[in-house]
Amino acid sequence: MVSTEDFDNDVENKWCPGCGNFPILDAMKESFSELDLPPEKLFLVSGIGQAGKTPNFLNCNMCHTLHGRALCVATGAKIANRNLNIVVNSGDGDCYGEGGNHFMAAIRRNIDLTLLVHNNQVYGLTKGQASPTSTLGMKTKMQRQGTFSVPFNPLAVAMVSGAGFVARGFAGDKEQLAGLIRRAMQYRGFAMIDILQPCVSFNTVNTMKWYKDRAAPVEETDHDESDLKRALDLVLQDPEETISTGLLYENKSSSPGDFHRRLDVLTEESLLDQSIDMQTLQSLLP
């Protein structure tokens, strides 16, 4: 049996004390051990930002890539080896800013991996600038008069773009989060969890208390996650009032199928285990 300790390593953690990333890290370990996934079967891919550092603090295969590009590297790896369990750690700036185009494409491609977006509504690594999800008018050292852009709504975008598994986690509810990660990894196709997370150093607006006052787990309601329209209603709620958390939408039908199911060459065997036969190639030449 795999235990959470199997994922511990002795790499010095570089997050601020009290950072919302710690419970996310714990929840990841918990879900991996519950899924009985040994470190060598797991491949974590991350971008740049405080969230991007996450794989460094876990004992498993990892590639800590470039700003915004984690989903691309992860997609290439999954195409190569369907047997890898791939989790992408990204942040609101990394995924919705620098990597916005890749986010859209990954949803459409429906590649079978799990995307965790550590969304703290601010840039942490570069010390407190506004992010794509910062509240309108939020003041920072760089946005002295407050942000002028309306916040990006990642879950609404994901839902209308055809994502099959759309969830919102909260760093203040580790148990719910671990469950979501587990279900996301079991989902066959692109699964995303936008994880609300306080930034203790740079976001004085969206604090742990602010989130706790608004977080509303859907498990405690009669929400039906197969109902896309109701799910969409939930992510269009005014976040100043209520923020629904949990599994908001899941497409349980096999249609249209994930990337690997749509490509004959990938359905049976991993590309890694296949080879081009040179005689066959020769015979196909004009």
Binding site: T65, C72, V73, G76, A80
Partner: peptide
């Protein structure tokens, strides 16, 4: 980056 990902994963 997809090319890098595939190569990293052995293809």
């Amino acid at each position: 980056n997809m090319a890098i990902g595939s190569s990293f994963a052995g293809v």
